[in-house]
Simulated scan of single mutants.
Amino acid sequence: MRQDRTRQDRTCQDRRLALVTGAHRGPGLAIASALAQAGVQILLGCRSRERGHAAAAARPEGAWMEPVHLDVTDDWSIAALRELVRREYGRLDILVNAAEVALDARDDLLPRERFERSFAVNATGAAAVTEAMLPLLTRSEAPCVVNLLATPGGGAPAYLASKAALEALTRAEAARLKGLGVKVNGIRPVSLPGPAGLRATAELARRYALLGPDGPSGTVAMAEPLALAG
Rank of each mutant, 00 (worst) to 15 (best):
Pro189Asp: 04
Gly90Ser: 11
Arg82Ser: 14
Met133Gln: 08
Met65Leu: 09
Asp104Lys: 01
Ala123Lys: 00
Met1Leu: 09
Ala80Asn: 14
Ala202His: 07
Asp108Gln: 05
Gly28Leu: 13
Val190Met: 11
Leu29His: 11
Gly125Asp: 03
Val20Gln: 09
Ser118Arg: 07
Leu92Trp: 13
Glu141Arg: 12
Val40Ser: 04
Ser77Glu: 09
Glu61Trp: 02
Cys46Gln: 04
Ala56Trp: 09
Arg112Leu: 08
Leu109Trp: 05
Ala57Asp: 15
Asp14Cys: 05
Leu92Phe: 13
Ala99Phe: 04
Ser191Val: 10
His53Ser: 06
Val146Ile: 15
Gln13Ser: 10
Asp104Thr: 00
Ala56Thr: 07
Ile42Gln: 09
Pro189Met: 04
Glu50Met: 02
Val96Ala: 10
Arg16Thr: 11
Asp75Glu: 13
Gln8Met: 14
Glu224Pro: 00
Asp71Pro: 01
Arg10Asn: 10
Gly179His: 07
Leu226Ser: 13
Asp71Arg: 11
Leu177Gly: 05
Ala209Arg: 06
Asp74Gln: 06
Val146Thr: 08
Ala18His: 05
Tyr159Asn: 00
Ala202Phe: 04
Gly212Pro: 10
Trp64Pro: 00
Pro157Met: 13
Ala56Val: 03
Pro27Cys: 13
Ser162Asp: 03
His53Gly: 01
Ser33Val: 10
Ala63Met: 01
Arg49Leu: 11
Arg51Gln: 15
Lys178Trp: 14
Val68Thr: 11
Met133Lys: 09
Leu110Arg: 10
Gly194Arg: 14
Met65Cys: 07
Gly155Tyr: 10
Leu180Phe: 14
Arg82Ala: 15
Lys163Cys: 03
Lys183Leu: 10
Val72Ala: 04
Asp214Gly: 09
Ala227Ser: 15
Asn185Pro: 12
Ala80Tyr: 06
Asp93Ser: 08
Tyr159Ser: 05
Val190Ile: 05
Gly90Phe: 08
Thr6Asp: 14
Arg82Trp: 03
Thr124Trp: 03
Trp64Ile: 09
Thr6Tyr: 11
Ala127Asp: 00
Ser140Val: 08
Thr201Leu: 12
Ala221Gly: 00
Ala165Gly: 15
Asp4Cys: 03
Val72Thr: 15
Asn147His: 11
Arg176Tyr: 03
Gly154Ile: 02
Asp75Asn: 10
Ala34Asn: 07
Val72Cys: 08
Pro225Trp: 08
Arg139Cys: 02
Leu160Gln: 10
Gly62Val: 02
Glu61Ala: 13
Glu50Pro: 01
Ala36Pro: 12
Ala55Asn: 07
